[in-house]
Write a protein that binds this DNA or RNA. Structure first.
Lengths: 149, 149
DNA sequence: ATAAAACATAGCGGAATAGTTGGGATAAGG
DNA sequence: CCTTATCCCAACTATTCCGCTATGTTTTAT
């Protein structure tokens, strides 16, 4: 019932990126320093994020990563699903749907697991990277326009 | 992000017990047969449920388990918390609350994890064993009064 | 050329999962 | 009484997953 470090670190890194990239790429090293996350491990996380198209990379010296889209268009759910797989409180599903629908198992699937999954996914899809970045800036007293002065 | 077999099997077993116990104890063997779950493994699950006071046991031949309370008074959340531990999408909590509240980490804790945890727990605490047992009986065309004829 | 970065992949130690095994203790029924 | 059904308890094991670390290779700005 827990998210792994992939999802937790990855989400932190994405918020960090949203906050610190002013339209420019940000090096993994700087994210790893600010967030206290191992560089090597972050590389693995970003390989997944890149493959999924959530970030773009710029190679070579002074390279780094940058968000592929506007933070307002990146759902937290998209990030978590890339790093954690389908967000579901249980693995199996096929068995029970194709099986008999009169079992206790099916009853629980429909009334408990399916509804929990729906609640989880609706929530994480209702939040965007911008929501989190804005909240972070608010707490830290950083006005959004400050970057453009 | 998944429930383990403890929680899944345990919940099924509890619904089975609610459905098949007409105020009488039910043997683990019969539950294990109906649900297709290893008897020995179920014993471990019921040891936890008993320790938590959700079921009572009757020893000896013709013994078995029986719910400690009315199904309407047993929340699904209580069962799952006994078998899975605190229902939370991440382990840590102390660190980040005692730490600096200006971190990205704290921002995510408050806006994502805490709210997910709240949603999950509210849901499982809004459902009772009776809800599931009733739904099961409805699907299987078994009127509740049938047992008293 | 050099250094800074992304990119790729392999391996590894520890913990958790999902059981199995093997034996008790207890009580009902014959 | 004695057998049998049942709960009870503890330890053992096989497998998988997690959370990294390590070691490179490739690309590019300076």
């Amino acid at each position: 019932m827990k998210f792994s470090t992939k999802g937790r670190y990855g989400l932190r890194a994405m918020v960090d990126l949203a906050v610190h990239s002013q339209g420019e790429q940000v090096s993994l090293y700087s994210i790893s320093e600010r967030q206290g996350i191992s560089m090597n491990y972050l590389e693995q996380v970003f390989a997944m994020l890149k493959k999924a198209g959530l970030v773009k990379s710029i190679k070579g010296a002074q390279g780094g990563y940058i968000l592929s889209a506007n933070p307002a268009d990146i759902k937290i759910g998209s990030i978590l699903r890339v790093l954690e797989g389908t967000l579901s409180v249980i693995d199996e599903r096929g068995e029970v749907t194709s099986g008999n629908q009169t079992s206790v198992r099916y009853c629980i699937q429909v009334n408990v697991w399916d509804r929990m999954n729906a609640a989880l996914n609706e929530f994480v899809d209702s939040l965007t990277l911008e929501d989190l970045a804005d909240n972070y800036r608010k707490i830290n007293g950083i006005g959004e326009t400050m970057y453009y002065i």
